[in-house]
């Protein structure tokens, strides 16, 4: 009954066995473990099995360690000046020094803190907004849904970075909080749209109707029936939002719209260009922070490849046994 191009026949045979042969259904799963944990461990396994995702996780872990252990790893304080200005790489300063006489390597190590912080916080916040908007918008019908649809589409087509620049320029307070705020404000719409269409498709599924027939209330249907089935999409929109947030933070900092005294990869490049690092030939100062941003962003998209595998029901339902 199935077309080999999509799902192989044997996949069907597995689930369509005559009732008598039921004992051959996977008996080896520990029946004592709570099912939620089985789902989680299987999900983690699915992500890890994906080679790209594994690479991403390793890179991500590297940056996380860098951020956590910055005080231990960095040879100097990132803001300590007084070294030779605009020096090239040497044994004392592996990556050289900035125009203000600070150690570049220490700045790169400390810079990971800002990027990760912005990525995680802005990622979580925009995902939260996306989940709330996406779920409720997917569950309601009628004119309200139309209005939300219009607002989300508006936020999708309005170019995010110019909007961030304008808001940042008005707000003038140039802290990290402001950057996170504008990133969230402009970054939730994509996730909301994806989650909404998933909610809509799930709410039409029979098991949701069946839950209504089981006497479940709306909030329970949303949180216990629909939401757990969107784990992979929520995770994926988190990683997407975090990537966008990291890139946006670096862009705003590069324009000098953040707190330029704070050491982040974006502000490093801001100072590098303003102090004509291009003319002094300090290519490490240019290369290192940007490469870190690119690697961190790549690692997040690589992890996302694995998370995408979760939404493939054949993988999720543990055919890897």
């Amino acid at each position: 009954m199935t077309t080999p191009t999509t799902l192989p026949d044997p996949g069907g045979s597995e689930s369509e066995r005559p009732a008598g042969a039921a004992d051959s259904a996977p008996p080896d799963l520990p029946t004592s473990a709570p099912p939620r944990w089985r789902v989680v461990t299987r999900a983690a396994g699915t992500v890890w099995v994906n080679r790209k995702a594994r690479l991403g996780l390793v890179v991500l872990a590297f940056f996380a360690l860098l951020a956590l252990l910055a005080p231990v790893l960095a040879p100097y304080s990132p803001t300590a000046g007084g070294f030779e200005r605009s020096a090239g790489p040497s044994s004392a300063h592996l990556f050289g020094t900035t125009a203000a006489g600070e150690d570049v390597l220490s700045q790169v190590i400390y810079g990971s803190r800002i990027s990760l912080l912005v990525g995680v916080v802005a990622g979580v916040l925009s995902t939260l907004v996306a989940v709330v908007v996406g779920l409720s918008w997917g569950y309601v019908r009628g004119p309200v849904a139309e209005v939300v649809n219009f607002v989300v589409n508006l936020f999708l087509v309005i170019p995010g970075l110019p909007l961030m620049i304008v808001i940042a320029a008005y707000l003038q307070n140039s802290g990290l909080g402001m950057i996170i705020f504008v990133v969230v404000l402009t970054g939730w719409a994509w996730g909301a749209r994806v989650l909404r269409s998933q909610t809509q498709s799930l709410r039409g599924r029979d098991f949701v109707t069946a839950a209504q027939f089981s006497g479940e209330r709306s909030w329970r249907i949303v949180f216990r029936e629909i939401l757990p089935n969107m784990t992979s999409i929520i995770a994926s929109s988190f990683f997407g939002a975090a990537t966008a947030a990291i890139l946006a933070e670096s862009g705003l900092s590069f324009l000098g719209l953040g707190d330029t005294t704070q050491v982040s990869w974006g502000t490093m490049l801001f100072w590098a260009q303003n102090s004509n690092a291009l003319l002094t030939g300090q290519w490490v100062l240019l290369l290192a922070p940007g490469l870190c941003i690119a690697l961190l962003a790549t690692s997040l998209s690589l992890v996302n490849f694995g998370v995408d595998g979760l939404s493939n029901p054949r993988l999720r339902e543990g055919s890897g046994r």
Binding site: S15, P35, V39, R205, D206, F207, T209, A210, A211, F213, S214, G215, E216, E225, P228, N229, P313, R316, E317
Partner: peptide
């Protein structure tokens, strides 16, 4: 109600016990 498609009518993440306990 008994549904047409037994694959769609059960939430893939809930055990049989959970599904039956709710009603």
């Amino acid at each position: 109600m008994v549904f047409q498609d037994p694959y769609a009518a059960l939430n893939p993440l809930h055990t049989v016990e959970y599904t039956l306990t709710r009603p």
